[in-house]
Design a protein around this nucleic acid. Sequence first.
RNA 1: GGGCUCGUAGUGAAGUUGGCCUAUCACGCCUCCCUGUCACGGAGGAGAUCGCCGGUUCGAAUCCGGUCGGGCCCGCCA
Length: 436
Amino acid sequence: MRILNKTIAEHVGTQVTVQGWLHKKRLLGGVTFINLRDRSGLVQVVIKNKDEVEKLRGLQVGTVLAVTGSVKEEPRAPGGAELHDASLEIMVPVTDEPPIEIDKPLSHKPDNLDTLFDYRVVGLRNLKEQAIFKVQAAVKEGARRHFFANDFTEFNSPKLLPGATEGGAEVFKLDYFGKDATLAQSAQFYKQIMVGVFERGFEINPTYRAEPSATTRHMTEFMHIDAEMGFTDMQGLLDFMSGLLNNTISYVWENAGEYLAQWNAEKPLLTEKIPQIPLEEVHQKYTEATGTSTVGEKDLRPDEERWICEYAKENLGSEAVFITEWPREGAKFYHKFKDDDQTVAERADLLFRGVEISTASMREHRYDKLVTQLQGMAGGNPEDPGFSYYLSAFKYGMPPHGGFGMGLERVTQKLLGLHNVKEASLFPRDINRLTP
RNA sequence: GGGCUCGUAGUGAAGUUGGCCUAUCACGCCUCCCUGUCACGGAGGAGAUCGCCGGUUCGAAUCCGGUCGGGCCCGCCA
């Protein structure tokens, strides 16, 4: 019977078998120590029999083994117990030396990221690399729990779309049996449509952006937490997001502590309701503080995003902050504008530790007004098959609603203090990288 | 897309005002020694046409041009 490595201490005094990968071997002459890795972690095996040690000659880290032995309590062993009198069964011998060493932390220096990703297939076997994605899995789980607790239904929308789209970011174009198609740059249309079905819905799926961005926070494919809720106003939406961020982070810290510790991650400082600052106020504060005038600009500069997060942490007790009151310029056609001021979009960007992790907005839900905005702001034709299906959801009744998209890798990156968002992606895709 | 910057064994680094480089170190790998290691320790060894092409020079890892491949920042976004 196979037992898991982490349960070793529960089997003291018995004969057990563990199975996994050779992670490290230390030959001291009369005694050899090996670390075996399985899904639960590492276990130490002590081998004194020369014939058993010889079985490992020429075999590299990665060799798949079954080890049978007796469990001894041993304070000097990691975990308090280890395997003795071991007999080894080589299940899959590995004779090729791994291209990178996986038993100690891998270099995450910007200059070495290329190597890190080139050898990702084996590099991910490194426990500290795994920890990133254990944390990421916990982020997803924590978010899902908050969604479910608030009556959201999880759905999956198509990522192959017809040529016409919402506009904005560059899209990947592809040939679809002779027709023009694109890869979804967001679940925007579908998640709004789902408001007419479930009222509240979300999905966690890939999104594609063909922007030739070469920064530490962009990829061409990333995981998007897309959500949309009906019968809400802007404040209700932001309150929900405050709860989402707080509860997700609490869940992660309660359930992924050992992985967070490997990156020395510090729990973010957050307020129950994340503070809100109007865009123009950020510009004014930044201008006053730095002497660089950004007053009147329609967007935030990256340096402003970093600055205002520091400001919010020190003065408002939160490492996350909503930027509200966005100008009409730069808004999407589906955005809703303030009823008493059509020049201001009901939109908010959620900044966390210096980067934008989410954009939220109220959507224009009135059919006639939406059609007008589509034509006027995006130059779109309501009859176009890329738009007509979307518009029909409004024609047949759509309540006031709003939603947001949140970048999973950016959240993970910022929770762990990673320098580049790609480090939080299993197999990152950017302008230059399509493999592994 | 614009600006700046980098490219040395499998990996990470040193050397880069031209010569002392026949290229240094650490990890990993191979051989041997070692009975409590956990970044084990010790002795020895293999492994690099210094990204590639061309130029300047008596002489190029080092200077120049081109090229390919990275990185950072900006624009844009999540």
